[in-house]
Design a protein around this nucleic acid. Structure first.
Lengths: 253, 253
DNA sequence: TGTCAAGGCCTGTATAGACAAGTCAGCGCC
DNA sequence: GGCGCTGACTTGTCTATACAGGCCTTGACA
């Protein structure tokens, strides 16, 4: 009955339980079998069963308990690092077709804001990349990235219209490790308005991103401006401290 | 030696271990005492000790293990649930003075959007609370909340101008357990503009919030609109998958 | 002096049993 | 009919024990 035959017992149990929840065998919103029943079914003691249930509870697939069996809940899993960082991978993960139109790639002196975030002296060079990102062929976001020179040089022999810059950088061994996203709202300026095909002053969802190496050195500073009708960010958190973040296509309704 | 005398043993142990890490009693980067030593010191069996260590490991305060004792690590904690949910507690946590001016408290039929999110039939009653929230006396956010009737009735004998509604609800045993925040941008409407003292159509950072019980029943639906100059949200994530979220006062620079 | 194997220590995993505390249905009493 | 109480069931917590497997020091041997 178990999904696989290797690995610790509690891992096999938790994989099997998760399968049952996601397959609907344990319907959402309904209590799952009691610990005693599960022990009997798999012929194991209560320890591994509880450990498996605890794992699922931590991940949000089970809720409730104490005196009554916990309840199954299907949840969107937390988006992994790459999906959260890369527009291309994000779009693919939600079943949309990503696209891009590069506006410019340029080596120039860092803007004051980029220089400050990247820890560069005034006048140092960065590689700036400006792209319009599309979702199913429709404009969704304007991306302005400043890469430090050492990372940016990879962009000269890579066509940013062909896909994910991040995937390419990772492939070339650039150690993207940590990213801080700061979210706020801004009014569309003339460039945004023209690229996104909206009026000037239209509200846009802005995400400024500082991507760093494992040693904490900044590698890239980005300013992404989304049409709010195309994408939203979500933060899920619980009183126990679990936090899950995601970026989603705005539901049309 | 234990920090407090009530609560389950493993919780007391984990609180005590965390204290030792943060106080430097267990220096960062150095292995902590072995499970056997901790069992002996506290006179308990291995179960609760392991449970306490597992909690700290999940939160990132301990790393490593398997064959050798785990290593202590001090980390910036993720903002706890209450701080993220409550404007009042958030403001206090960043050293600002929270304020509020209640615009209205009303029992009325749920708006179509609120009814849909709360899983109510059309025409069911909710308690709506509209407040202007202030940071150091300056308008920062307009909050519109719809509470299901059973939760909302607590608001009749509580003055929402006096402080945190969430703290009061928790004190009265309302099981706020999980919250999903959806972030996007909207243009200020006439009401927003008047309350926040900005122009109509000014971009605002909108956070829609669905707060649920431990059983997953929706309890409150909220629509908060922040002045982007006053607050931002951040998401920190790493390639290893740890994610930390926060809400911050926008730096003035 | 360098290398490799042995053994001790430590965590990971699993079993079994016991009691506390919360939930809920059903019964009996008013 | 409605209320409250009881008791069965379930999860939460804790103890005790055992063995597998990773890690590291020690010591014998080349």
């Amino acid at each position: 009955m178990k999904t696989s035959t290797d690995g610790p017992l509690h891992q096999r149990l938790s994989a099997e339980f998760l399968r049952r929840i996601n397959s609907g065998e344990w319907p959402e919103g309904r209590p799952v079998p009691s610990e005693a029943q599960l022990c009997a079914e798999f012929g194991v003691s209560r320890g591994p069963v509880r450990q498996a249930l605890a794992t699922l509870r931590r991940e949000g697939s089970l809720v409730g308990g104490q005196g009554k069996p916990p309840v199954a809940r299907r949840t969107a899993p937390s988006q992994p690092f790459a999906t959260f960082l890369s527009f291309t991978q994000w779009a693919e993960s939600i079943g949309r077709v990503p696209g891009q139109r590069t506006v410019e790639v340029a080596r120039r002196r860092a803007s004051p804001e980029a220089a400050a975030r990247l820890g560069l002296a005034e006048g140092e060079f960065v590689v700036e990349l400006v792209r319009l990102r599309l979702l199913d062929g429709v404009p969704a976001m304007v991306e302005r990235s400043s890469f430090i020179a050492e990372v940016g040089r990879h962009l000269y022999d890579f066509d940013p219209d062909s896909g994910s810059v991040y995937a390419e950088l990772l492939r070339r061994g650039v150690g993207l490790h940590h990213a801080r996203h700061t979210i706020d709202a801004v009014a569309a300026d003339a460039t945004d308005a023209q690229l996104l095909e909206v009026e000037v002053r239209e509200p846009l969802l802005r995400v400024r991103r500082l991507t760093s190496s494992g040693q904490g050195e900044p590698l890239e500073y980005g300013d992404d401006r989304y049409l709010p009708a195309m994408a939203t960010f979500t933060i899920d958190n619980t009183i126990e401290g679990r936090t899950v973040v995601g970026r989603y296509r705005t539901e049309e309704d």
